[in-house]
Simulated scan of single mutants.
Amino acid sequence: MSVKPWVVDDGLWAMIEPLLPPSPERSPGPKPVPDRLCLQGILFVLYTGIPWQQLPLELGFGSGQ
């Protein structure tokens, strides 16, 4: 099985996570997608060239909206 370039492995995530601001304690609306999955969604869109609105929900990266 080949490595997908939009998958953030543990080593890369260990470098990126400390740079992100903390999430607010409570906010109205639906629960946000975890930061790591959101980043993977962004990388998927950049790698494939699809429009953000067409991000497949099945991947679990969020809705793209």
Rank of each mutant, 00 (worst) to 15 (best):
K4W: 04
K4E: 10
K4Q: 13
K4M: 12
K4C: 11
P5F: 01
W6N: 10
W6M: 14
V7M: 15
V7N: 14
V8Q: 00
V8T: 09
D9T: 03
D9N: 13
D9A: 06
D9L: 03
G11Y: 13
L12H: 07
W13N: 01
W13F: 08
M15W: 13
M15P: 02
M15T: 05
I16L: 04
I16V: 04
E17R: 08
P18G: 05
L19M: 14
L19G: 12
L19Q: 15
L19V: 09
L20N: 09
L20W: 12
P21V: 10
P21T: 09
P21R: 13
P22N: 13
S23P: 05
S23K: 14
S23Q: 14
S23L: 12
P24L: 09
R26Q: 07
S27V: 14
S27G: 10
S27F: 06
P28H: 05
G29V: 07
G29K: 01
P30N: 15
P30F: 14
K31P: 10
P32L: 06
P32I: 08
V33M: 06
P34E: 11
P34T: 10
D35W: 04
D35A: 12
R36P: 02
L37C: 11
C38V: 08
C38M: 10
L39E: 00
L39W: 00
L39P: 00
Q40V: 02
Q40P: 01
Q40I: 02
G41H: 00
I42G: 01
L43N: 00
F44A: 14
V45W: 02
V45S: 06
V45K: 08
V45P: 01
L46W: 02
Y47R: 12
T48L: 09
G49V: 08
G49D: 06
G49M: 07
I50M: 06
I50E: 08
P51A: 07
P51Y: 05
W52K: 09
W52A: 08
W52Q: 12
W52T: 11
Q53K: 14
Q53E: 15
Q54E: 07
Q54L: 06
Q54K: 09
L57T: 05
E58V: 14
E58I: 13
E58W: 11
L59Q: 03
G60H: 07
G60D: 09
F61H: 02
F61M: 07
F61D: 01
S63Y: 08
S63F: 05
G64H: 06
G64A: 10
G64T: 05
Q65Y: 07
